Every structure is written in structure tokens, then in C-alpha cells.
Lab assay of single mutants.
Amino acid sequence: PEDLERKVRELQKNGVSPEQIEKILRRDGVDEREVQELVKKVS
């Protein structure tokens, strides 16, 4: 979803590592495939 992507970009802009971003997304209940997609987009 659009807002998730925005969140991921925000986190990355704040210097959060892709690994941390993955953890955060998983903790928020984002589905694994979605997590991978989002992280791939920003890394």
C-alpha cells in the first residue's frame, strides 16, 4: 500500500537500516512478501 511505502521511505530517510525496517514491518503485521517488496524498493 501507498502509506506503507511512504513509511518505509521516511524510516530510510531517518537512517534506519533495511534490516530494522524489515523488523518494524513484520512487527506491524505486514505480510512477508510485502515486506520483501518494500525493502527492495528502498535498498
Results as ranks from 00 to 15, higher is better:
P1D: 10
P1C: 11
P1N: 13
P1A: 12
P1S: 12
P1E: 09
P1Y: 15
P1W: 15
P1K: 14
P1F: 14
P1R: 15
P1H: 13
E2G: 13
E2T: 13
E2Q: 12
E2A: 12
E2N: 11
E2K: 11
E2I: 12
E2F: 11
E2V: 11
E2C: 13
E2Y: 13
E2M: 12
E2P: 09
E2L: 13
D3I: 06
D3T: 08
D3A: 11
D3F: 08
D3M: 07
D3E: 11
D3G: 08
D3S: 09
D3K: 05
D3H: 07
D3Y: 09
D3V: 05
D3Q: 08
L4S: 03
L4C: 03
L4N: 05
L4A: 04
L4V: 05
L4E: 01
L4H: 04
L4I: 08
L4G: 01
L4T: 04
E5L: 14
E5H: 07
E5M: 11
E5C: 13
E5F: 10
E5I: 12
E5Q: 08
E5A: 10
E5V: 11
R6T: 11
R6N: 10
R6P: 02
R6Y: 09
R6F: 09
R6C: 11
R6D: 09
R6E: 10
R6V: 07
K7Y: 15
K7F: 14
K7A: 05
K7C: 08
K7L: 13
K7E: 03
K7H: 05
K7R: 13
K7V: 09
V8G: 00
V8E: 01
V8M: 03
V8A: 04
V8T: 01
V8N: 00
V8Q: 00
V8F: 06
R9I: 08
R9D: 04
R9A: 08
R9M: 09
R9C: 12
R9Q: 06
R9S: 05
E10P: 00
E10D: 11
E10R: 10
E10A: 08
E10F: 11
E10L: 10
E10Q: 10
E10S: 04
E10N: 08
E10K: 07
E10T: 06
E10W: 14
L11W: 11
L11A: 02
L11G: 00
L11H: 01
L11T: 00
L11C: 04
L11R: 00
L11F: 04
L11S: 01
Q12H: 15
Q12Y: 15
Q12T: 12
Q12M: 15
Q12C: 14
Q12E: 06
Q12I: 15
K13M: 11
K13F: 07
K13V: 06
K13I: 06
K13E: 09
K13L: 10
K13S: 09
K13Y: 07
K13T: 05
K13H: 07
K13W: 06
N14R: 13
N14V: 07
N14F: 08
N14A: 14
N14G: 07
N14M: 14
N14H: 10
N14Y: 09
N14I: 10
N14W: 09
N14L: 13
N14S: 12
N14T: 07
G15C: 06
G15V: 01
G15T: 00
G15Y: 02
G15E: 01
G15Q: 02
G15A: 02
G15M: 03
V16E: 04
V16D: 02
V16Q: 04
V16M: 14
V16A: 12
V16I: 09
V16G: 01
V16K: 10
V16F: 15
S17W: 02
S17Q: 06
S17R: 05
S17D: 06
S17T: 12
S17Y: 03
S17I: 03
P18Q: 10
P18V: 15
P18M: 15
P18C: 11
P18K: 13
P18R: 14
P18N: 10
P18L: 15
P18I: 15
P18A: 12
P18E: 05
P18H: 07
E19Y: 06
E19T: 06
E19K: 08
E19V: 06
E19Q: 10
E19W: 09
E19R: 06
E19G: 07
Q20L: 09
Q20M: 13
Q20G: 07
Q20F: 05
Q20I: 09
Q20A: 09
Q20Y: 05
Q20K: 05
Q20D: 14
Q20P: 00
I21S: 00
I21K: 00
I21Y: 00
I21R: 00
I21A: 01
I21T: 01
I21W: 02
E22N: 03
E22K: 13
E22D: 02
E22R: 11
E22Q: 08
E22M: 15
E22P: 01
E22G: 08
K23D: 13
K23R: 11
K23E: 15
K23P: 00
K23G: 08
K23H: 11
K23V: 12
K23Y: 11
K23T: 11
K23S: 12
K23A: 14
K23I: 14
I24Q: 04
I24F: 04
I24P: 00
I24R: 02
I24N: 01
I24W: 05
I24M: 09
L25N: 00
L25S: 00
L25K: 00
L25W: 00
L25F: 02
L25G: 00
L25H: 00
L25Y: 00
R26C: 04
R26L: 14
R26D: 02
R26A: 07
R26E: 04
R26F: 05
R26S: 06
R26G: 04
R26H: 04
R27M: 13
R27Q: 12
R27L: 13
R27K: 10
R27W: 06
R27D: 15
R27A: 15
R27F: 09
R27I: 08
D28I: 14
D28V: 07
D28W: 15
D28K: 06
D28P: 03
D28R: 05
D28Q: 12
D28N: 07
D28F: 14
G29Y: 02
G29R: 01
G29I: 02
G29W: 02
G29V: 02
G29S: 02
G29L: 02
V30Y: 15
V30N: 03
V30L: 14
V30P: 01
V30G: 02
V30H: 13
V30F: 14
D31G: 10
D31R: 03
D31H: 06
D31N: 09
D31E: 08
D31T: 11
D31W: 03
D31S: 14
D31A: 10
E32A: 06
E32D: 07
E32K: 04
E32N: 04
E32R: 03
E32Y: 06
E32Q: 06
E32T: 04
E32F: 06
E32I: 07
E32P: 10
R33Y: 08
R33W: 12
R33Q: 11
R33E: 10
R33P: 03
R33S: 11
R33C: 12
R33F: 08
R33G: 07
R33H: 09
R33N: 11
R33T: 09
R33V: 09
R33D: 10
E34M: 15
E34R: 14
E34N: 06
E34D: 10
E34F: 13
E34Q: 13
E34S: 12
E34W: 14
V35L: 14
V35I: 15
V35T: 03
V35W: 08
V35F: 07
V35H: 01
V35K: 01
V35P: 01
V35Y: 07
V35R: 02
Q36H: 09
Q36N: 06
Q36V: 09
Q36E: 10
Q36R: 12
Q36T: 07
Q36F: 05
Q36P: 01
Q36Y: 08
Q36K: 11
E37C: 07
E37G: 04
E37Q: 08
E37F: 07
E37L: 09
E37S: 07
E37P: 01
E37K: 11
L38E: 02
L38M: 10
L38Y: 07
L38I: 13
L38G: 02
L38A: 08
L38V: 10
V39K: 03
V39R: 02
V39Y: 04
V39I: 15
V39C: 09
V39N: 02
V39A: 03
V39F: 10
K40S: 11
K40T: 08
K40I: 07
K40R: 11
K40E: 09
K40D: 08
K40C: 09
K40H: 12
K40F: 12
K40V: 06
K40W: 14
K40Y: 13
K40L: 11
K41Q: 08
K41D: 04
K41M: 13
K41N: 08
K41G: 09
K41T: 06
K41L: 14
K41E: 06
V42G: 06
V42W: 11
V42C: 09
V42S: 05
V42N: 05
V42Y: 12
V42H: 06
V42M: 14
V42I: 15
S43T: 14
S43R: 13
S43L: 15
S43C: 14
S43A: 12
S43E: 09
S43V: 14
S43P: 05
S43K: 13
